[in-house]
């Protein structure tokens, strides 16, 4: 692969305007995500983090603006091009969003059956491998209803990783998880990035995760309807003059500071 291709950002968002039913939630949002980066979208409740994510993955159409992946336009792309791009994504939904009528193995196998020329035996092998990778070896034949919330989330990640995507999106990965499981998920995210060079986009307000794995963050604000800060978390915590940003990011510092 030549250097040119590598310098194109994984995601470019330009002047994106997003909202529902005429209500504008985000006004002219512009940012880009580099390849192989762990990128966090942070902000308080109701600031449009999840809305932005839904627009990035194409679940909602933007009111204006464009989203490009690896230099290719996604927003107004033809159906075939869109499908080709969708193949390169994986998404972990908040609750795991596993299909309840399928076993974990079948959940992971479905995207493989849909998009790869692999034989049934190979699909099975990959599903087992992916589940093992997220620490669910031995649970292949369980149904989602038979396992805990944290396990469901990890199984969701295994499904998101099934096609070895170039970009994986996470919607609140640590929501509803205990701190230990949450840490393990963070480690898993880093492992995936380090092994496959995957680009990671995470919507979260979990400060622990932000400080431990984020390469770069953008912060959204409800009143501003857009990005109010961009940079590494430590940079922002140390240098930002915006009280909204420092208040959000310094809470952990306060907690961690020795008495």
């Amino acid at each position: 692969m030549n250097a040119d291709a590598n310098s194109i950002p994984a995601i470019e968002v330009e002047k994106l305007q997003a909202g529902y039913d005429g209500d504008v939630v985000l006004q002219e949002v512009t940012f880009s995500v580099r390849r192989g980066e762990v990128f966090f979208i942070i902000g308080g409740s109701g600031c449009g983090k999840s809305t932005l994510l839904r627009h990035l993955v194409g679940l909602n159409a933007p009111m204006a603006g464009t989203v490009k992946f690896f230099g290719q336009p996604f927003t107004h792309a033809a159906l075939a091009d869109r499908r080709a791009l969708l193949k390169t994504f994986g998404m972990l939904f908040q609750g795991g969003a596993l299909w309840s009528s399928l076993t974990l193995r079948e959940n992971v196998a479905l995207p493989l059956e849909e998009y790869t020329p692999l034989s049934a035996r190979e699909v099975n092998e990959i599903a087992t491998l992916k589940l093992a990778q997220v620490g669910l070896g031995g649970f292949e034949d369980y149904f989602p209803a038979e396992i805990s919330g944290g396990m469901r989330k990890r199984a969701g990640l295994a499904r998101a990783l099934a096609l070895d995507p170039e970009i994986v999106f996470f919607d609140e990965p640590s929501a509803g998880l205990d701190p230990v499981t949450s840490r393990k998920l963070d480690e898993l995210i880093l492992q995936v990035r380090d092994t496959f060079g995957t680009t990671i986009v995470i919507v979260s307000h979990e400060l622990d995760s932000i400080y431990s794995i984020a390469d770069r963050v953008i912060m959204l604000d409800r009143a501003e309807k857009g990005v109010i800060a961009e940079g590494t978390p430590r940079e922002l915590a140390a240098n930002s003059r915006d009280p909204r940003v420092s208040e959000f990011l310094r809470r952990l510092d306060m907690a961690a500071r020795p008495a």
Binding site: T128, L129, L131, A132, G137, E140, D141, T195
Partner: peptide, 16 residues
Amino acid sequence: TLLGQFTKARETSVPF
């Protein structure tokens, strides 16, 4: 590492 993970998963996998 990945190969190791997989081999281990196979050994511990109990058919349900």
